[in-house]
Design a protein around this nucleic acid. Structure first.
Length: 876
RNA sequence: GCCCGGGUGGUGGAAUGGCAGACACAACGGACUUAAAAUCCGUUGCCCUUUUAGGCGUGGGGGUUCGAAUCCCCCCCCGGGUACCA
C-alpha cells in the first residue's frame, strides 16, 4: 500500500492517458488497414507469431516480440508505408481439452474466455493491431480453409495413411504427446506408456526437402536458424548399395552409405531390429537371441537408448551377405544403433572408418579392415581423408585414390554393374499429421467401404459435434469415435454408408497458413483474394520465439510451397525476414546452501554433502570475490548467482498486468526494449522498469508543469544551434537504430537527449515536437497525450517521421586522440579540415606529449583524419 | 559427443579495427525536507598514490597489426537444441 502511494505522488497520469488513447485508437479505427491501400505507398507486412491463448494469460515474454513489431509498425506508418499489423489466436490445443476433461466445460467456452483475456491484455499494452482482421484457428470460418488446404494436399498425393507407433497409455486409455511422457511414464498419473502402432495421416514433407533447403538461401534470417533448419533437413549425398544374401538367392539387403569409397572395408552388416528382413535372415540357432533382442529394443524408450549410447549392443542373425566388390561373405547383425527410420534401416559397417562401427566391432571382436591410409586404428576409426588401400579385386580397383575420387569411381562402378545407385538422403521424415483428440480440425474425409474419400469443397467446414464427454474412447482413438450420429454418414455420391475420419489435425495445421488469412479474413469464397495476396506477400518482418526455429517455420514453409504449386500464393517463401527474440528470464537469484545441521556450505561443495538445502539470499548479503559471489558475512562460502527461466513452480513469473498497473504500459514497453538486444536471453529486473519509468516522468515534466498541468516548454522561439545539434543527433541515431532494430541503443539516445534538454530551461516547440514524434513508437500513449497538449487535434500515428539534416551535426572543431606506440597519451582539439602536417606539428610541440618524445626517434606517424594521431617511437 | 548462441564494472548492457565501460540499475556523498518518499546535483572498473602522475583491465593462452573487446589459432566456462542420421 505504502509502495503504491509513494509512486502515485509524482507520477504522470498514465492510468488516465493510456485508457483514453486506447479508446481513441479503437473508436477512430486509427490502425485499421484499408481494404484498398494507398496506391502510391510501399507496403510493409509486419507479423507476430500468434499466441496460444492459455488460461494463465500473457507473461512478460509475449510483449517482448510484440513490442518490437509494434514499434516497427508505428515507425513504418510514419515513414509513409502501408502497414499491415494483425493479430489472432492459435486456439486449438491440448490444455483446453484437458481442462474440459477435468471440468466438463466445452473447450470452445474455455478458449473464447481465454481469447477475451488475451485480447484485453494486448489492448492494455497499446499495440497498434488492426483488430478488424483478428482470426482464430478454432473459428469454423477459418478452419474451413485449413480443411480446404488438406484437400489440396490430398489431391496432390501429399497425404497418405500409415501405421505409425504412438505413445499409448493403457491406464489412461489415451494416446499421449511426447511432452506428456516423462521417463516412459505418463506425466499425469505416472502410468506406463508403450509404443503402439495406429493408423495415422502422414504428409509428404520429404518431397519438398530439396526445395525447403534451397529456399533458405534467399531469406533474410539469422545464420543460426537457417543452420538449424539445414541440420534438421539433413541432406547427405552417397549411394544405395545392394548386398546379395548368401543362401538366399534373389534376396538382397539395400543400404545407404555416404562412403561408397570404403566398400572394401565393410566387414559386417547391421540391420535395425525392426527391419523387415530380420525374421527371414535369422537362423534357427539364433532365433531365440534375435527375438529377445528385438523385444528388448521395442520396449526401450528413447531415454533408455540414449543411456546405452556408450555400450553398443546387438546380436548376429547367423546369416551372411556378399560384398558386391569382392564377393566376400560378411556376417549380418541386428543392433539398435541402426535406426529403422533413417536411410534404408540397414548399414554396411566399416569399422576402420566409422567410429560407431569401430566401437561395435571392438565390443564384439569383429574384423577391422583398413582401406584408407593415415589413421591410428589401435585408438579410433579414421574418418578423414587419405589414400585408398586394400581396395582392389578382379572387379575394380580404387587403390591410391583420395576419398573424393574413390567415391566417384566406386559409385560409377556400382551403377554400371547395377548393384547400386547415387542417392541423396534426408534426415527429414514425413510429418505425422493426425491426433487422437477432440479439440482439433476434423479431416474432410469419409471412409466408404473402408477406403478414404475426400469430401467435396462445398461440404466445408466440417464442424466438430458437441460431445457429451471428452474422455478418451479407451481404445486410443479420438473421443469423436463415440459420437455415432456424427461418425456414421452417407456418401452422397454413391448413397453408400460411410464413416467419418475421427482423427483430428495437430495444432500446427492452423498456424501453417494464418499469415495469409489476415490479408482477407472475411472472404468466404477463397482462402485469400489473389490480388490482395500479390499486394501484401511476403511477410516483410516476422518476429517470434526461438522455440519455433525448426518445426513451425518448416511446416509453414512446406504448406506455402504446396499452395504455391496450387497457384494460391505468388511467392515461394512466406517470411522474408525473421527475427527470433531471446527468452526473458526471471530476476537474478542468489542461492546459498546449508547442510543438515544448518551450517553454510560453499556452493562448489554442494553434492558432496549428503543433504543440503538451497536458501535464497538477498543481493545485499553477497559480494563478488574474484570470479565468484560469496556471503559478505562468510567470505569462504560461495553462492550461486543465476537468473532462471520463468516458471510457475519456481515462482518467478512476472505478470504484465501488475507492471502496467504500477508503471503503465509505456514503461513496460520501453523496459522490454531497453533490457538489451532483442535476440538475446536476458534477466528481468523490476528496478530496470523503474528506471525507464523515471525517464518517462522526466519527459512529461519537461513539457508539462508539475503543479499546474499546463505547458512548460514549447515556446515559439528560435532554437539554438546547440539544441538543433542535439535534436538532429537523436533523430539520426533513433532512425538508424530502428532500421537495424537496435531498440536498446535508440532508447539510450533519447535518454541522452533528455539529459541535455533538462539543462536548457525553455525548449522551442520546433525542437520538442520532433522529439515527441520519435518517442511515439516506443511510448505511444504518452506521446499522443503530449502531442495533443501541444495543440494538435489529430493522432500523431501518421505524422511524418522527422528527418535529420547533416548540416546541423557539423562541428567546427574535432577532438583527436594522441597515441604513443598505440597508448593513449593525450587529446587535442583541431579545427575541422585542418591540414595533416599542421596537426602533426601541433602534436609534436604539445607540452603534454613532448615528454614521451624525449630521447626517442619517431619511426612512423599514423594519421587518421578527424580521429587520431599515433607516433611509433623507439629509443634513439 | 555434435550443432547453435554467449562470456566486457556490483548488475543489464554500449563500443565490430582507433578514447573500453555510452545509457540505465545498484551503491555512496550532497541539496531540498521536522523527517521520509519523490526530485535535483555529484562520485562510482581495479590497483598504487595525500595530490599529481602512473600501472592493470573485455573468460584464459598465443598470433596478426602502429593500434585488438572487435580479426586468426588453441583452450576453459555458461546457456539452448539434439540424440548413435550410416
Amino acid at each position: 500500500m505504502h509502495e503504491i502511494k509513494k509512486r502515485i505522488r509524482n507520477m504522470y497520469p498514465f492510468h488516465k492517458i493510456e485508457k483514453k488513447w486506447q479508446a481513441y485508437w479503437e473508436d477512430q479505427k486509427t490502425f485499421c488497414t484499408p481494404e484498398q491501400p494507398h496506391p502510391n505507398k510501399e507496403k510493409f507486412y509486419v507479423l507476430d507469431m500468434f499466441p496460444y491463448p492459455s488460461g494463465a494469460g500473457l507473461h512478460v515474454g509475449h510483449p517482448e516480440g510484440y513490442t518490437a513489431t509494434d514499434i516497427m509498425a508505428r515507425y513504418k506508418r510514419m515513414k509513409g508505408f502501408n502497414v499491415l499489423h494483425p493479430m489472432g489466436w492459435d486456439s486449438f490445443g491440448l490444455p483446453a481439452e484437458q481442462y474440459a476433461l477435468e471440468t466438463g466445460t466445452h473447450p470452445r467456452e474455455t478458449t473464447l474466455k481465454n481469447i477475451d483475456r488475451f485480447r484485453a491484455q494486448l489492448k492494455a499494452l497499446g499495440f497498434s493491431y488492426d483488430w478488424d482482421r483478428e482470426i482464430a484457428t478454432t473459428d469454423p470460418a477459418y478452419f474451413k480453409w485449413t480443411q480446404w488446404i488438406f484437400l489440396k494436399l490430398y489431391e496432390q498425393g501429399l497425404a497418405y495413411q500409415a501405421e505409425v507407433p504412438v505413445n499409448w497409455c493403457p491406464a489412461l486409455g489415451t494416446v499421449l504427446a511426447n511432452e506428456e511422457v516423462i521417463d516412459g511414464k505418463s506425466e499425469r498419473g505416472g502410468y506406463p506408456v508403450v509404443r503402439k502402432p495406429m493408423r495415422q495421416w502422414m504428409l509428404k514433407i520429404t518431397h519438398f526437402a530439396e526445395r525447403l533447403l534451397e529456399g533458405l538461401e534467399a531469406l533474410d534470417w539469422s545464420h543460426s536458424i537457417k543452420e538449424m533448419q539445414r541440420n534438421w533437413i539433413g541432406r547427405s549425398e552417397g549411394a544405395e548399395v545392394n548386398f546379395q544374401i548368401k543362401d538366399h538367392p534373389g534376396k538382397e539387403i539395400r543400404v545407404f552409405t555416404t562412403r561408397p569409397d570404403t566398400l572394401f572395408g565393410a566387414t559386417y552388416m547391421v540391420l535395425a531390429p525392426e527391419h523387415s528382413l530380420v525374421d527371414m535372415l535369422t537362423t534357427t540357432e539364433q532365433q531365440q537371441a534375435v527375438q529377445r533382442y528385438q523385444k528388448q529394443a521395442a520396449t526401450k524408450n528413447d531415454l533408455e537408448r540414449t543411456e546405452l549410447q556408450k555400450q553398443k549392443t546387438g546380436v548376429p542373425t547367423g546369416s551372411y551377405a556378399v560384398n558386391p566388390v569382392n564377393q566376400e561373405n560378411i556376417p549380418i547383425w541386428i543392433a539398435d544403433y541402426v535406426l529403422s527410420t533413417y536411410g534404408t534401416g540397414a548399414i554396411m559397417a566399416v569399422p576402420a572408418h566409422d567410429q560407431r562401427d569401430y566401437e561395435f566391432a571392438k565390443t564384439f571382436d569383429l574384423p577391422i579392415c583398413e582401406v584408407i591410409s593415415g589413421g591410428a586404428l589401435q585408438k579410433e576409426a579414421h574418418q578423414g581423408d587419405g589414400r585408398l588401400m586394400n581396395s582392389s579385386s578382379s572387379f575394380i580397383s580404387i587403390d591410391g585414390l583420395h576419398v573424393e575420387g574413390a567415391k566417384q569411381k566406386m559409385t560409377d562402378h556400382l551403377e554400371r554393374e547395377k548393384v547400386g545407385v547415387r542417392k541423396i538422403n534426408y534426415k527429414l521424415r514425413d510429418w505425422l499429421f493426425s491426433r487422437q483428440r477432440y479439440w482439433g480440425e476434423p479431416f474432410p474425409i469419409i471412409f466408404v467401404d473402408g477406403e478414404p474419400k475426400p469430401l467435396p469443397e462445398t461440404d466445408l467446414p466440417i464442424e466438430l459435434p458437441d460431445v457429451e464427454s471428452y474422455k478418451p474412447s479407451g481404445t486410443g482413438q479420438s473421443p469423436l469415435t463415440t459420437m455415432e450420429d456424427w461418425v456414421n454418414t452417407v456418401d452422397v455420391e454413391t448413397g453408400k454408408p460411410a464413416r467419418r475420419e475421427t482423427n483430428t489435425m495437430p495444432q500446427w495445421a492452423g498456424s501453417c497458413w494464418y499469415y495469409l488469412r489476415y490479408l482477407d479474413p472475411y472472404n468466404d469464397k477463397q482462402l485469400v483474394d489473389p490480388e490482395k495476396e500479390k499486394y501484401w506477400m511476403p511477410v516483410d518482418l516476422y518476429v517470434g520465439g526461438a522455440e519455433h526455429a525448426v518445426l513451425h517455420l518448416l511446416y509453414a514453409r512446406f504448406w506455402h510451397k504446396v499452395l504455391y504449386d496450387a497457384g494460391v500464393v505468388s511467392t515461394k517463401e512466406p517470411f522474408q525476414r525473421l527475427i527470433n527474440q531471446g527468452m526473458i528470464l526471471g530476476e537474478m537469484e542468489y542461492t546459498a546452501y546449508r547442510n543438515a545441521k544448518g551450517a553454510w556450505i560453499s556452493a562448489e561443495d554442494v553434492g558432496e554433502e549428503e543433504t543440503c538445502h538451497p536458501e535464497h539470499v538477498d543481493e545485499f548479503q553477497v559480494q563478488k570475490q574474484d570470479e565468484f559471489f560469496v556471503l559478505k558475512e562468510h567470505p569462504g562460502i560461495r553462492v550461486n548467482a543465476r537468473a532462471h527461466k520463468m516458471s510457475k513452480s519456481r515462482g518467478n513469473v512476472v505478470n504484465p498486468d501488475d507492471v502496467i498497473r504500477d508503471y503503465g504500459a509505456d514503461s513496460l514497453r520501453l523496459y522490454e526494449m531497453f533490457m538489451g538486444p532483442l535476440d538475446q536471453v536476458k534477466p528481468w529486473s523490476m528496478k530496470g522498469v523503474e528506471g525507464v519509468y523515471r525517464f518517462l516522468n522526466r519527459v512529461w515534466r519537461l513539457i508539462i508543469h508539475e503543479k499546474t498541468g499546463t505547458l512548460n516548454s514549447a515556446a515559439d522561439e528560435e532554437p539554438s544551434s546547440k539544441q538543433l545539434r542535439a535534436l538532429h543527433k537523436v533523430i539520426k541515431r533513433v532512425t538508424e537504430d530502428l532500421d537495424s532494430m537496435d531498440f536498446n541503443t535508440a532508447i539510450a539516445a533519447m535518454m541522452e537527449f533528455l539529459n541535455a534538454a533538462q539543462k536548457w530551461g525553455q525548449i522551442p516547440r520546433s525542437v520538442i515536437e520532433p522529439f515527441i514524434l520519435i518517442l511515439s513508437p516506443f511510448a505511444p500513449h504518452m506521446a499522443e497525450e503530449l502531442w495533443k497538449k501541444l495543440g494538435h487535434a489529430q493522432t500523431l500515428a501518421y505524422e511524418s517521421w522527422p528527418v535529420f539534416s547533416p548540416d546541423y551535426l557539423k562541428e567546427d572543431e574535432v577532438e583527436m586522440i594522441i597515441q604513443i606506440n598505440g597508448k593513449l597519451r593525450g587529446k587535442i582539439m583541431v579545427p575541422v579540415g585542418y591540414p595533416q602536417a599542421e596537426v602533426l606539428n601541433r602534436v609534436r610541440s604539445d607540452t603534454s606529449i613532448s615528454k614521451y618524445l624525449e630521447n626517442k626517434s619517431i619511426q612512423k606517424e599514423i594519421y587518421v583524419p578527424g580521429k587520431l594521431v599515433n607516433f611509433v617511437v623507439s629509443a634513439s
